[in-house]
Design a protein around this nucleic acid. Sequence first.
RNA 1: CGGGAUGUGGCGCAGCUUGGUAGCGCACCUCGCUUGGGACGAGGGGGUCGCACGUUCAAAUCGUGUCAUCCCGACCA
Length: 575
Amino acid sequence: MKMSKMFVQTLREFPSDAEVISHKMLGRAGFIKKLAPGVYTYQPLMWKVLKKIENIVREEMDRAGAQELLMPFVQPKELWEESGRWEVYGKELMRLKDRHDRDMCLGPTHEEIITSVARDGLKSYKQLPVNLYQIQSKFRDEIRPRYGLLRGREFIMKDAYSFDVDEAGLDKEYENMAQAYKRIFERCGLDTKMVQSDSGAIGGSVSHEFMVITDTDAGENDVFYCNDCDYSANSNHAVSNLPEAVVDGKDYFKETKVIDTPNTHSIEELSEFLNIPSTLILKSLVYIIDKKPVIALIRADKAVEETKLMNAVGGIDIRIASSAEIAELMAKHGFDAVPGFIGPMKGVKIIADNTVKDMKNFVVGINQIDKHLVGANLSDLGVELNYTDIRLVERGEYCPQCGKPLQVTKGIEVGNIFKLGTKYSKPMNAVYTDINGKTHPYVMGCYGIGISRTAAAAVEAHYDEHGIKWPIAIAPYHVIIVPVNIKDELQMKVANEMYDALKSAGIEVVLDDRDERAGVKFKDADLIGFPYRVTVGKTINEGFVEFKVRETDEQEKYTPEEATEKLINNIKAVL
RNA sequence: CGGGAUGUGGCGCAGCUUGGUAGCGCACCUCGCUUGGGACGAGGGGGUCGCACGUUCAAAUCGUGUCAUCCCGACCA
């Protein structure tokens, strides 16, 4: 490729709307162009990167025994009604109508479609197991797209779905995919951590995410992990052992009684007012889960993990209740409390965290303004409690497996694997016939990789102040040859010879034949992130070219022949 | 959905307070000069100032509305 003809516009400045490194770099270096919020054009350089990631994914998926297909992007409502998700998916599902006024949607994921494809094609146990995958654009109408390709609305995803006769088969395929994923990200030049995670709106029981660990702001997930054993989990799923805490307030409260606690609207104010540790307060939070109020109870020094709470009631949408909603709830049950004085009440769904179980002689709100019950015990609450884990793990807590301190870091989720079980096959009546002629729903798994997000994560992990440092395996080109002065015949002759030699050896090479000053060419080469740069300048008069490694900044002189050979060897070794 | 801000050529911005018919840097075209880390000089092309309505002799500028974009929040009582 000749640089003078390459379709790319590098900018002097970072795009003004970019916040994170990958967005800034990809925008400035001319890889992406925004068309609408969360919707980007992949310019030729970007598309080359994406195709490389796709091909690595393809090779490893095929090697793992999966088969590629391509399903429709626009999907009919009927299938989504079969699974029940047309009602529950929410606004992220981009809905539209065709000219006949039929409801359609843009595919945010393809469980419904693949399940319908499978049930038409997989009738017998003899055909199983099967793993089908596709690489395609997805559309999710995110509340707030941001961070460029890291959280776009339209993005490229590889999604795979496995079909087995039983759980044992699924377990095997799950492990098979986990191994394939490790190879994929390794080949892409990314360090990833496989962490336990919540299975979210996709549903199912067990799931893991593959996280690129990053110290940049772009990591949207908190990952807790243990240095002493193999425990690691997304914060939405992490569990922990707690340090010792005061949970019995007998030294503070001799009797059980209602006392005045004026203006204690927060746990902090209340614990200060009563002069007690917050571990002696039972915190009551009102959430709206799938439009219904739920009261969450937890020891007041700890926070609720909303995903866990949502799962505890089997919901798919959760948010904290507004003041108005709380007022409405109070009125309905004959109370008038405001936040700060809320407590458990009859007639409302209550979920209690495990931390509540051991509390004795504690303080709790009783739905009356400026009053709390002190020296209370669980039997005083007047409601039956079921305990579960809805607590957010925090820094300073201990590993649930080995008891050592947990570490926390930020991570970018680039892949995930789920055990779906029969969540979709059952309601959609997707069954096979076993050896005895009986039918059973398939036992399914699903496995996703964000292709475009992986590319952005690679930038987050590999850059410096001058630009991107693409890992060789996914770099748009391997080498750029920079003749310093294109009017110098010798320089151009050598540059052209190397260019031809590298090209015929299968190396992807760019010749910067623009009539620009050397500085401009160097800046662009760094910004775009070519793994190798060969400069043909004055030193060619002594027979040498300059060879520079983007990743390490190493710089050496070689004859053109040596440089060519070294490039071919280095690059072939990685591919 | 709430709060804040911003819409002026491909990109980054000024002009708006105090209305007079649009400007700067980068990018682009031509010529010259230059060629090892984003040179310089001269000339040139490109914009219904987000959109609509209004005020006015006159609106990028003032008013009303609207659309769009960005940021923060949607957080623990």
